[in-house]
Design a protein around this nucleic acid. Structure first.
Length: 374
DNA sequence: GAAACGTGGGC
DNA sequence: TGCCCAAGTTT
C-alpha cells in the first residue's frame, strides 16, 4: 500500500510539533531517569499490556533486587517471579530471566543494539525490539504499541490500519537523529491526549494533521473489536494443614498458565460434581492423595484474560496416600515464611494471607484447637 | 490469523 | 455490575 501524500508533505511540521509538545508535556517516569539499555529493556517488558501506574509500583524494587543483567541472569527463577508477583502475564518474567542468561552468555552481558538481534531474545517482539533499539541505542526503528496504533488510526481516519501500514507511516515520519524521543513522544501522546475515550483534541499538537478530527468523530477510531463472553468455571482449592502445622502447596507446571507460581492444590469442578467431590478428585489426580473436605474458608470471584472463576478454598485433611506431584512441578509443606517467600497469583495470595495465622501450631482440620507445642 | 496469557482501574 | 482494555508476545 502507499502512504497518503499528506503525511509525506507535512512530515517536518508533524515531527516538529510532536517533539516540541513532548519537551513540555513528558511525564517524569522512573525509566526516563537513567537510560541504560538494561533499564529501558526491563521497563518495556513490564509495560507490555500493563498500565504505567502499575509498572511504577514494581520498577524500582525490581531494579534494586536485580541491578544488572548479570544479577538477573544469576538469580533463581523463583526470585524473579516473586518480584513479578501481581504484575500478571508471568511468561514475561520467565522470558526476561532466560533472555538475561542469553545476553550474558552470548553478548558479554550487554544488550544487542540491533532490532534483528533484540527480536531473537525471548519476550522481545516487534514493539519491544523497536523501543529498546530506538530509546536505548538511538536506532531509527519504529515502536508501534497500542497508543501509536490508536493515534495513527485517527490521523489516517482508518478504522483498523494493518500493522504494516502503521509501521510504514511511522517510519516515514521518524527523524533519524531523534528516533527514541519521537517514539516515546508518540506513545505519550496516545496515553495522555489521544486517549481511547474523550480524546483531548484541544491540547493535541497533531490536531491540524488529523483526519479523524477534521471528520469530527475521533473517538470512532480505531473501531472496537467485539469479544466473546467469558466462560465461567467453579474452581476449588484445598488448604491441607499437616501435623507439623505446615500447609501443602503445589508449584504449577512451567508451561501452564501462571507457570512456576505456587498454589493451593485443586482444580475445576465438572458439570456433574459437587465442589467437595471435585476437590477430592483433583487431589487424587494431581497429588495422589485421598482427602476429607472440611468447611469453606473463603470464596472469591476472579476474571482472567479469557475466563472467569468462582474460587472456593476449603479446609481439608489428608486421609490416605503419600504426596506426589502427578500434575505439578513440585510440592512443599509450607510454613509461614515459605508462604511469604513463594511467588503466587493474586487469588492464591489471598488464601495464603488468610491461612498464615493458622500455621505453626498443631491444628487439626475442622477442630480449630491448638495442642501444646512440642 | 486466532487464541492464550493476569490484573485492576474506570465508567 | 459487567465490560473495556492497558507501552504485546508466543504458538
Amino acid at each position: 500500500m502507499s502512504t497518503p501524500s499528506p503525511l509525506r508533505e507535512q512530515r517536518e511540521a508533524m515531527v516538529d510539533a510532536l517533539l516540541r509538545w513532548f519537551a513540555e508535556a513528558a511525564r517524569p517516569l522512573p525509566w526516563r531517569e537513567e537510560r541504560t539499555p538494561y533499564r529501558v529493556w526491563v521497563a518495556e517488558v513490564m509495560l507490555q499490556q500493563t498500565q504505567v501506574e502499575k509498572v511504577k509500583r514494581y520498577y524500582a524494587a525490581f531494579l534494586r533486587r536485580f541491578p544488572t543483567v548479570e544479577a538477573l541472569a544469576a538469580a533463581p527463577l523463583e526470585a524473579v517471579l516473586k518480584a513479578w508477583e501481581g504484575l500478571g502475564y508471568y511468561r514475561r518474567a520467565r522470558a526476561l530471566h532466560r533472555a538475561a542468561q542469553t545476553i550474558v552468555a552470548e553478548y558479554g552481558g550487554r544488550l544487542p543494539d540491533e532490532v534483528s538481534a533484540l527480536r531473537r531474545l525471548p519476550g522481545v517482539g516487534a514493539y519491544t525490539a523497536g523501543a529498546v533499539a530506538s530509546i536505548a541505542f538511538g536506532q531509527a526503528a519504529p515502536a508501534v504499541d497500542g497508543n501509536v496504533r490508536r493515534v495513527m488510526a485517527r490521523v489516517l481516519a482508518h478504522p483498523a490500519p494493518p500493522r504494516a501500514e502503521i509501521e510504514e507511516a511511522v517510519s516515514l515520519l521518524l527523524p533519524a537523529d531523534e528516533a527514541g524521543t519521537f517514539n516515546e513522544a508518540l506513545m505519550e501522546l496516545g496515553a495522555t491526549v489521544c486517549r481511547p475515550r474523550h480524546p483531548q483534541c484541544r491540547r493535541c499538537p497533531w490536531r491540524p494533521f488529523c483526519r479523524a478530527h477534521r471528520e469530527g468523530a475521533p473517538e470512532q477510531y480505531p473501531a472496537p473489536k467485539g469479544r466473546p463472553a467469558l466462560p465461567h468455571y467453579d474452581v476449588v482449592a484445598a488448604v491441607i494443614i499437616g501435623e507439623e502445622g505446615r500447609v501443602l502447596l503445589a508449584q504449577r507446571r512451567a508451561e501452564d498458565m501462571l507457570g512456576g507460581l505456587w498454589e493451593f492444590p485443586g482444580g475445576k469442578r465438572e458439570a456433574d460434581e459437587t465442589r467437595e467431590a471435585a476437590l477430592r478428585r483433583e487431589l487424587l489426580e494431581e497429588m495422589a492423595i485421598h482427602i476429607e473436605v472440611g468447611e469453606p474458608l473463603i470464596e472469591m470471584e476472579h476474571a482472567y484474560t479469557h475466563f472467569r472463576i468462582t474460587l472456593t478454598a476449603f479446609r481439608a485433611r489428608l486421609v490416605a496416600g503419600e504426596v506426589r506431584c502427578l500434575e505439578c512441578d513440585a510440592f512443599l509443606w509450607a510454613d509461614e515464611a515459605d508462604l511469604e517467600r513463594l511467588p503466587m497469583s493474586v487469588t492464591d495470595r489471598r488464601i495464603a494471607t488468610l491461612v498464615a495465622p493458622l500455621l505453626g501450631t498443631r491444628l487439626t482440620a475442622g477442630e480449630g484447637r491448638a495442642t501444646s507445642p512440642t
